[in-house]
């Protein structure tokens, strides 16, 4: 970020250090298929019908190793979005805006988003956003208010987007949960769409059993996926695990995003899914990312690429 060079060496050093934390993904919709690209890449979206950005896991309020300034890394991520040659149509935040669901943490997040002028933004809650009040504060500030449960859908340039909530009413020993009410709504919502409609589903916790011993999955995701299998192009975007994991299952492609705050270990590496504290500041940028998606109206498949901060 050139405009930070005018500040002191300490600030510059810090920005170098936080590089692992603060990026997102630019998603390009091409021919009904999403392609991912790091936000720091020169925009190559000319053949895309539209693009949007995914960021995730800002964890505002976290203040320990390896990232004592999660607001700074989020600010940097948002600046990268603003620097895109082609303005993304909107931004998706796939949850864990805050670390502890505190009002002041939501304030900070809202202020940073406003300051960055990223435009239309859509949010789904992470489990860190619903502590103590079942998400009341989150939904009041960031919800779409289409349904009491907080889930929603919208259409953009022929693609259908579905925001799901899988971090409430969790059961002892269980994973993420969608619940019967949300599944019934989803079934009905999708039934009205033709199979040619590109569908993008986003939720915080992975919608496939990525690593259940660490809670990385959703108990009833199989039911949701059964409604999606008839579509020709389905992309499922999640956060939660602070790293990129991808999987293809028929016409359904799954992606998890990096965090704008701090990385977590690869599945099963180490005792638990806490912050990767061993990451040195100078290496942090290799772990953080922004996802950028562009939609191109062709017959080809969606492609997704992720880039790290440099």
């Amino acid at each position: 970020m050139d405009n930070d060079d005018s500040r002191g060496d300490g600030r510059r050093q810090f920005l170098k250090c936080m590089a692992w934390a603060g990026a997102g993904t630019l998603w390009l919709m091409k021919g009904g298929v999403l392609h991912a690209q790091a936000l720091d890449e020169a925009a190559t979206a000319t053949d895309a019908s539209f693009s949007f950005v995914q960021i995730s896991d800002s964890h505002i309020g976290f203040h320990k190793a390896p990232n004592p300034d999660v607001a700074g890394t989020l600010r940097r991520s948002l600046a990268m979005i603003g620097a895109q040659k082609t303005r993304p149509a909107f931004l998706l935040h796939t949850g864990d805006l805050t670390h502890l669901s505190k009002p002041e943490e939501f304030d900070t997040l809202a202020g940073l988003m406003q300051e960055a002028r990223v435009g239309r933004s859509f949010y789904v809650p992470g489990e860190h956003d619903v502590i103590g009040d079942n998400g009341a504060e989150f939904f009041r500030r960031f919800g779409e208010k289409q349904h009491d449960g907080g889930w929603y859908s919208f259409d953009h340039n022929g693609a259908h987007f579905v925001g799901l909530v899988n971090v409430l009413n969790l059961k002892a020993g269980g994973l993420g949960s969608l619940g019967a009410d949300q599944l019934a709504w989803l079934k009905k919502d999708l039934a009205a769409r033709s199979a040619e409609t590109p569908v993008v589903v986003f939720a915080h916790m992975p919608l496939w059993p990525l690593y259940p011993p660490w809670g990385w999955g959703t108990d009833d995701s199989g039911e949701a996926l059964s409604y999606l299998r008839r579509f020709g192009s389905v992309t499922v975007l999640n956060g939660h695990i602070h790293q990129i994991q991808q999987k293809v299952e028929g016409n359904i492609t799954f992606y998890t995003a990096r965090s704008t705050a701090y990385p977590q270990p690869a599945p099963g590496e180490g005792p638990g899914p806490g912050p990767l504290q061993s990451v040195k500041p100078e290496a942090l940028h290799r772990y953080l990312g922004i996802r950028d998606v562009r939609h191109v109206r062709t017959g080809g498949p969606l492609a997704v690429t992720d880039e790290v901060l440099t």
Binding site: L170, K171, A172, G215
Partner: peptide, 12 residues
């Protein structure tokens, strides 16, 4: 008394 972590429910 069974209990769990409501944000990491695999912890029981």
């Amino acid at each position: 008394y069974t209990y769990y972590c409501s944000i990491h429910p695999m912890m029981v």
